[in-house]
Design a protein around this nucleic acid. Structure first.
Lengths: 146, 146
DNA sequence: ATTCATGCAAACGGTTTGCACGCAT
DNA sequence: ATGCGTGCAAACCGTTTGCATGAAT
């Protein structure tokens, strides 16, 4: 209820119609603790008894990304896109090569770096994406094999 | 000639057959000053009068990536992979949102950051990808709008 | 001679699109 | 009442694969 209202306002602010599906998709993305794929959203919704077409998922995602409510990520070695809420707080991700999970981290180490590049190359930097990969604690422990 | 010899050695060292196509693909990637797609490689070769199948390009790329001679990149907002020579020196990329070109830069600002994360989260970090986007000098100048 | 690389065409999987219908405004 | 959102199925496009042929060792 409150949720729906909340998203409704966000959508309205962007001149978008406040539909059930848009609210559902935003809700799924927001309540996921890591970036998720379109298909995962689709399945999550199905699990909750919400029937939606995969193409609608993509269309909603497109709109959310265009309106900067959601961020699209392309992870290396993965040929599908992931989506996460754009909660402004600048985030980066650790990607576990073992279990394929992502972990968000808050600190950003490269503000100064960017300034240097801007000056040096005349580049007007709008943002960046940092993706760190390796083995998470549990996968590390399983993989005692060197 | 020398080129072919050079790649031949590299290939041999990896127990790979020294074929004309493999040499050509490596050469194209190496002589490109920014990461390129499989199709771009395919077209570059065609332009040079070298007839190769697109599936061979992909197969060669797969082998080169597996043997760490080449690195595969997945850029956000792009649903195709880019490839570049893995010249060991750690590189990052500026991606121009205007002209879609990539610029490689050498410095890496996040070594220390990684160590902190490893300690804090028990993550075993194997590598990272930093992607910075914005407008390059010339696009910036065209885009005086706003 | 054997093993592996290649071309072709067909399959694949994630994503997009055209069209007819349905819902939010 | 109108315009925009949605479902469906088909198209799309980057990438992969099976199979028969050709080249490198």
């Amino acid at each position: 209820m409150d949720e729906i209202k909340k998203y409704g306002d966000i959508l309205k602010k962007n001149n978008l119609k406040n539909t059930k599906h848009r609210n559902s998709v935003i809700h799924i993305i927001e309540s996921s603790n890591s970036p998720i794929t379109a298909e995962e959203i689709f399945l999550s919704l199905k699990e909750k008894g919400i029937s939606i077409s995969i193409s609608t998922v993509y269309r909603v995602l497109g709109i959310l990304v265009k309106n900067r409510l959601v961020v699209k990520l392309n992870v290396a070695e993965q040929n599908k896109a992931c989506f996460e809420i754009n909660n402004k707080e600048h985030k980066h991700h650790l990607f576990c090569v073992g279990c394929k999970k992502m972990i968000a981290v808050d600190e950003c180490p490269i503000q100064k770096y960017q300034e240097i590049l801007e000056e040096k190359l005349g580049f007007d930097i709008k943002g960046h994406k940092l993706e760190i990969y390796g083995y998470c604690k549990s996968c590390k422990e399983e993989n005692v094999v060197e």
